[in-house]
């Protein structure tokens, strides 16, 4: 297992280099002069020129690129043009908020999504299945910002039960978590339903029933356990979606995470911070997929023993 993990991490290195290259190039492609944005609307031409030289924006793009990659190789993500702080420090300060939000949303989505999927499969073609299928279509087709705004209007503005922004209290976590998990709940419940329906038709389920095992045990012990296998993979694969949703969710709820840092930095043409944040997202995605593969191997003995 250790060998496998090491190999996967080594394969991740070229991927990360690719991400760094692409994010660097994308930032040079978007319109807007970073020095001018940084200097502010009232700055003189001389000020702008000073800033340009200070951050190396006056150098040819190729030189800037080589500089950046060179520093990256030593683990230095650079300094933010906007605040002058270390990008790494800024990211580390905000990382816990984003990780917490992503973990909570994933947990909620797995819990609710799997439960709904199992119920829909067990009550197949019944009323519950119909209602739940409708709900999950609703879940996957509602844009994140729309869900977020609706929740804010209902629970913050109209009912006044929950804060609309900030991460100061535990109540502040509720709306962003629900918003972010909405899509994933719909997604996972559909995957779980179809995996369950398929599993319930399998020969070994008939064997278990022939043993006289109670129906609930057939479903929970055997069907759910087997149906979970493909769903675990799917959870890893849609984690990218979740990160995209996190950017939007953090913006709506003024969440002090990396997603909002990313949006703010793009607005400020803060190249180094944007590139750093994208790199962190890429690392997260790679780690989560590695993790789901490990979990998969752990719960599927056919893979564990090969």
């Amino acid at each position: 297992m250790m060998g496998y993990v090491t190999r996967r991490l080594l394969i991740a290195v070229p991927t990360l280099v690719g991400v760094a290259v692409v994010s660097f190039l994308l930032m040079r492609l978007i319109p807007g002069d970073p020095a001018r944005v940084l200097a502010g609307p009232d700055a003189t031409a001389a000020d702008v020129e000073l800033i340009r030289r200070q951050f190396g924006f006056d150098k040819p793009v190729l030189n800037q690129f080589l500089d950046y990659m060179g520093r990256l190789a030593t683990g230095d993500l650079g300094r933010s043009a906007r605040t002058g702080d270390s990008v790494l420090a800024e990211i580390l300060a905000r990382l816990p908020y984003t990780v917490m939000l992503a973990v909570l949303a994933t947990l909620l989505a797995v819990l609710v999504g799997c439960t709904l999927g199992v119920i829909a499969a067990v009550r197949r073609e019944g009323l519950a299945d119909l209602v739940l299928s409708g709900l999950s279509v609703f879940g996957v087709s509602m844009p994140v910002y729309w869900v977020g705004l609706l929740l804010v209007i209902l629970f913050s503005v109209n009912l006044g039960w929950l804060p609309a922004a900030g991460a100061e209290s535990w109540q502040g976590y509720i709306l962003p978590t629900v918003t972010l998990s909405f899509f994933t709940i719909g997604f996972i419940s559909r995957q779980m339903r179809s995996a369950m329906v398929e599993t319930m038709e399998m020969d070994f389920i008939r064997t278990v029933r022939a043993k006289g095992v109670a129906r609930w045990a057939v479903v929970l012990r055997h069907a759910v356990r087997n149906a979970a296998l493909p769903v675990v993979t799917v959870i890893g694969l849609q984690f990218g979606q979740l990160l995209g949703g996190a950017v939007i969710t953090e913006t709506i709820f003024a969440w002090p995470g990396i997603g909002r840092l990313l949006v703010e930095s793009i607005g400020a043409r803060d190249f180094t911070t944007v590139q750093g944040a994208i790199l962190i997202f890429a690392v997260a995605l790679i780690l989560v997929n590695l993790l789901t593969d490990i979990v998969y191997a752990y719960i599927d003995p056919r893979i564990r023993y090969d």
């Binding site: 020969d203 070994f204 064997t207 006289g212 719960i299």
Partner: peptide, 30 residues
Amino acid sequence: IRGRDITMIFQEPMTSLDPVYTVGYQIAEA
């Protein structure tokens, strides 16, 4: 009665056992 007084074995031994549990568990379950 099912599984105690009347029991059944099937044609496909390859697919008739649950792949994620040990055979010992599956006998003990009965």
